[in-house]
Write a protein that binds this DNA or RNA. Structure first.
Length: 706
DNA sequence: CAACACATATTTTTT
DNA sequence: ATATGTGTTG
């Protein structure tokens, strides 16, 4: 570690001896300087940088958020930039929340949450601008527009197609088709001629305006379109995780930029793992060229041991931009398990030992895998072994049926033109009133109030407009709809369902209280907010944080760190998924996984994988880690180069094809078959009618025939 | 109408 | 590798 530090000092970037350069900060804002002085040279430079458009290439674990927070505080304290003239844009609510909390807590009580008006996700900031400073009326909307979620979008599209009898091909992939249409692709799949997609899109846009609803894309698009006229030009636009920016978000930034606007964009191109969702890999290059931006680098990683960081560097095109500050630490362990169940047993023992003998808190242990379903076996075993765990799942109110039903009911009630939500609420098989979607649509459209729930939906706004008192409003709303009567009291889930809905309404009322709006307008605004904060809403309702082992996909692990990281199931066919060797994104995903580890990294693969598509070989990525960094069960099965491995697999497949059936065997369940492959631990047999099956020799139930 | 040709999804997930 | 949805050919 000593030599690393001295090399770093010699580079002249560290400022211990040059602190006088920042004396003006010490003078002007002593308390800010107190935390500023602890930043490294690169970080300090990024914070005080004067370039109008700065692109900060923040390496993994280099203190990206710290720099971003200090930049905000520097602008506020030293440059006297008003907080309401700063746009801080993130991709997730979680990231926005973290930044806001850190800004507030780092500034010793001067800044409150209300000051951070335009700190949030691209979508929530767009929403805030659209419902305040931007004239949405010129697009045909009114300020109290509501938000159409994916289900609502699909339902509306289906209704238009059915009502107009439009000829639309590949209806099941309609979202994908709309997406491609925006990029100029009119044909899809085997199509030779255009269908009526353009008409559908036109009608869909008109229909959204008529109903005063925007989908998630509209928020971004309307914001950039309107702001090109110059209604709101912030002094600063600060963008987090810039590598995840997609084209329309870039346009939104472009629309908001005025002559006096500076931009500070922070991101790591090596952590681009969402390009399949629209972010473009060349965004740094595009941005630099378009705005003549200055690019700086944050290269110092404080998180991982130098061993782990060296391994990570093997996955980068330019490893020189990453410097380690920590000691060597433990070797990386490569482990071969028979299958995922065996690994889960092994891990539960290992984790118990770590926790009980070494005193490692459970939440310093992360288990990472490629697919959501890989969590199942760990959940089962950990439950049985009483190891506390938490699976990070994509969950919002859509995933809780009674809650989503209620959300749609309220959406329909606050916006009676939201027919799809009314239809959903009324015709839901479990919580609805037992009518078909068609009947429901007729009732709502004709204002047929003979049905109780229809009457309640249509009368909600006028009922609410007579109420001024927020106190006890949650109970009043619950009783107004008589929610109990729709929740089937005999159901075992009754209490839980009721609780979810009550908590959700409480959240809505809380929103009205803090924003001091009249209930009639407040519910609308609160619902819009809830749609933009889906996951956060659920987190407040559902799970309390506990000391538990964290299970998650590699994707979900981005931005997190653990002392102990176990990457599970690094098999050929899984990492990279489907053997896509040329897909750099899979490589970056593996890089993200490795770099989550602070002290200890273990990577496993399965000799008898139970996952469909997984081959019994280790992932080629394991072979890319330099040998001197790892301790492995079986070095010899590792291939050193991708090309070598590719040839090896090809050879193996060819050998398999030509295989002469050596040994006839019998199995209690599958009957008779022939051995087609065999290695140290496993044996593969071809059965008539069952196909290929592999068995561990240890548990082998096979008996030779002849 | 059967048979084939061709394209695409499968995995990852936020608002 | 497999399934699905198109479109074309015989």
């Amino acid at each position: 570690m000593a030599d690393e530090t001295s090399r770093y000092m010699k580079s002249g970037k560290d400022s211990c001896s040059e602190d006088y350069r920042y004396d003006y900060i010490k003078q002007a804002a002593p308390s800010f300087y107190d935390s500023f002085k602890d930043l490294n040279g690169y970080q300090k430079e990024a914070v005080v940088n004067e370039d109008r458009i700065l692109l900060l290439n923040a390496g993994v674990g280099s203190g990206k958020t710290t720099v971003l927070v200090h930049k905000v505080l520097y602008l506020y304290n030293i440059k006297k930039v008003n907080l309401s003239e700063m746009l801080v844009l993130t991709f997730t609510n979680k990231a926005a929340e973290e930044i806001k909390q850190r800004v507030i807590s780092s500034d010793g009580g001067n800044i409150s949450l209300d000051d951070l008006k335009y700190f949030g996700t691209f979508h929530s900031v767009a929403k805030a601008l659209l419902s305040t400073v931007l004239p949405v009326e010129s697009l045909g909307y009114s300020k109290d527009f509501s938000i159409l979620d994916e289900n609502g979008e699909r339902e509306l599209l289906e209704r238009i197609i059915a009502e107009r009898g439009l000829n639309i091909k590949y209806k099941n992939n309609i979202e994908k088709r709309l997406d491609e249409f925006r990029q100029g692709k009119r044909l899809y799949g085997a199509m030779k001629h255009e269908d009526e997609l353009e008409e559908l899109i036109q009608i869909y846009q008109d229909e959204k305006i008529k109903r005063n609803v925007m989908d998630f894309d509209d928020l971004i698009d309307c914001c950039s379109e309107l702001d090109r006229y110059g209604y709101f030009k912030p002094s600063w636009i600060i963008i987090d995780e810039f590598q995840d920016t997609d084209s329309s978000q870039l346009e939104m930034v472009d629309g908001l930029m005025g002559d006096g606007t500076s931009v500070f964009a922070v991101g790591d191109p090596n952590q681009t793992i969402y390009s399949w969702r629209g972010s473009r890999q060349d965004i740094f290059k595009v941005f630099k060229e378009r705005y003549d931006a200055v690019e700086k680098t944050l290269p110092v990683n404080y998180r991982s041991t130098s061993t782990i960081l060296k391994a990570a560097k093997a996955f980068l095109d330019d490893p020189t931009k990453l410097e380690s500050k920590r000691g060597k630490g433990a070797a990386i362990i490569i482990k071969k398990h028979f299958n995922s169940f065996n690994e889960a047993l092994y891990l539960s023992n290992k984790i118990k030992k770590l926790h009980l003998e070494d005193g490692i808190p459970y939440n310093e242990i992360g288990i990472l895998y490629r697919k959501q379903k890989h969590s199942k076996v760990f959940e089962d075993v950990f439950k049985h072994e009483s190891i506390p765990y938490e699976v990070s799942l994509k969950k919002d109110f859509k995933d809780i049926p009674p809650l989503y039903w209620f959300v749609r009911l309220i959406k329909a009630s606050v916006n009676i033109k939201d027919y799809e939500s009314a239809v959903y609420a009324l015709s839901d098989k479990k919580y609805g009133i037992g009518i078909t979607p068609k009947q429901a649509f007729e009732c709502i459209r004709c204002g047929d109030t003979s049905l109780k729930l229809v009457k309640k939906i249509l009368g909600f706004n006028s009922w609410l407009s007579d109420i001024d008192d927020v106190e006890g409003l949650d109970k009043k709303i619950y009783d107004y709809f008589d929610i109990d009567s729709y929740l089937c009291p005999t159901s075992i889930d009754f209490d839980e369902d009721r609780d979810f809905i009550l908590k959700f309404i409480k959240g809505l009322v809380e929103y009205i209280k803090t924003n001091k709006i009249r209930p009639a307008d407040g519910i609308k605004a609160a619902m819009t907010s809830a749609m933009l904060y889906g996951r956060q809403v659920i987190e407040q309702i559902v799970n309390p944080k506990a000391d538990s082992v964290k299970l998650m996909t590699l994707h979900a692990s981005k931005g997190l760190e653990f002392k102990y990281v176990f990457i599970s199931g690094a098999n050929l066919g899984v990492m990279p998924l489907g053997g896509k060797f040329d897909d750099d994104e899979e490589k970056r995903l593996f890089f993200v996984g490795i770099t989550r580890a602070k002290d200890y990294l273990e990577i496993s693969y399965h000799s008898n994988p139970d996952d469909f598509g997984a081959l019994p070989n280790p992932s080629p990525y394991i072979g890319m880690i330099p040998d001197d960094l790892i301790v492995s069960d079986d070095i010899k099965s590792r291939a050193r180069k991708l090309s070598e491995l590719r040839r090896e697999i090809k050879d193996k497949i060819e050998v398999k094809k030509e295989v002469v059936c050596k040994q006839k065997v019998s199995h209690p369940k599958y009957g008779e078959g022939y051995v087609i492959d065999e290695d140290d631990d496993t044996i593969t047999v071809q059965f008539e009618g069952y196909g290929e099956k592999s068995f561990a020799k240890v548990f082998c139930p096979l008996k030779p025939v002849d």
